[in-house]
Amino acid sequence: MTDTNSIGLHEGSASQLAEKLNHLLANYQIFYMNVRGYHWNVRGSDFFELHVKFEEYYTDLLTKVDEVAERILTLGHKPVHAYSDYIKLSNIQEEKDVHDGKTCVKGVLKGYQTLIELQRELLALASDADDEGTASQAGDYIREQEKTIWMLNAYLSK
């Protein structure tokens, strides 16, 4: 009997990674819903610009939700899928009734900063476990989101 899973990772490491990925998944789901809310409810002189930008963000976040869940399954574990679990696990808090454009953008910025922090932790854990698949996924997300943070900060400095 072996202590590795079907993709050759040590089962203990795969379990730790799946737990960290489920934490990340919860944060993605809550952040996704926040950005959806910003898209629906933003008002003001930047409405047209922000409405389109928030749709771009939530579309990308939804893709990443699916990719993170599928990575958990690839590791041989189950992704959490109840919003009650997401609320318990997420560092990102639900945003309600936010409609001011600048406040919405600050919420997006804070959400991406939280995701990057979690993904850096995941990247370190994946590297220690020789899990190139998870490390690559986390690294790709970090790179994209760092650029987004730069752009959001540039927007807020206007």
Score class of each variant (00 low, 15 high):
G107L: 06
D85H: 07
P79M: 10
Q119V: 04
E117L: 13
L75K: 07
Y86R: 02
H77K: 01
S90R: 01
G76R: 11
K96E: 06
K106W: 02
Y86M: 03
I87R: 08
Q93T: 11
E121P: 10
K102T: 14
L123T: 03
L89V: 09
T74C: 10
V80T: 08
S90Y: 05
Q93H: 02
I92A: 00
A124S: 10
K96L: 03
E121K: 10
E95V: 00
K96I: 05
L122H: 06
I92G: 00
T114Q: 11
V98H: 12
Q119K: 15
D97P: 09
K102F: 02
D100P: 11
Y112K: 10
G76Y: 09
L89S: 11
P79A: 03
P79C: 03
L125P: 00
T74S: 13
D85F: 03
E94K: 07
Q93K: 12
D85Q: 15
I87L: 14
A124Q: 06
Q93G: 05
I87G: 08
T74D: 11
S90C: 05
L123G: 03
D85C: 08
V80H: 04
G111P: 02
L123F: 13
G111H: 06
A82D: 14
A82L: 14
T114G: 12
I87V: 15
S84L: 14
D97N: 10
K78N: 06
I87T: 14
L125E: 07
I92M: 11
G111Y: 11
L109C: 14
H77Q: 02
P79D: 04
L75T: 02
K110P: 05
V98S: 05
A124H: 01
G101R: 04
D100L: 06
T74K: 07
L109N: 14
Y83V: 13
Q93C: 01
L115I: 08
L118K: 07
L118P: 06
A82W: 03
S90W: 07
I116L: 14
E121M: 09
E117D: 14
L123H: 13
P79I: 08
T103H: 02
K96D: 00
E95N: 12
G101V: 02
R120T: 13
H99P: 11
L115S: 09
G111Q: 01
K106S: 04
I92E: 00
V98E: 01
A124M: 09
Y112T: 04
L89N: 08
N91W: 02
V80K: 09
H99E: 15
K102Y: 08
T74V: 13
Y112E: 05
K88T: 15
E94T: 11
E94Y: 01
Y86L: 03
D100S: 00
V98P: 01
Y112M: 10
Q113W: 05
K102S: 11
L123E: 13
G107M: 06
V98F: 09
D100Y: 13
C104S: 01
L122I: 11
K106M: 13
T114D: 13
V108G: 08
D97S: 12
S90F: 07
S84M: 14
G76A: 11
L75P: 04
T103P: 07
Q93A: 12
S84C: 08
V80A: 04
L75S: 03
E95T: 06
L118D: 15
K78Q: 04
D97C: 08
L73P: 03
L123Q: 08
T74M: 00
K102P: 01
H99W: 04
Q93L: 09
T103C: 05
D85Y: 01
K110Q: 12
D85R: 11
K96Y: 13
E94Q: 11
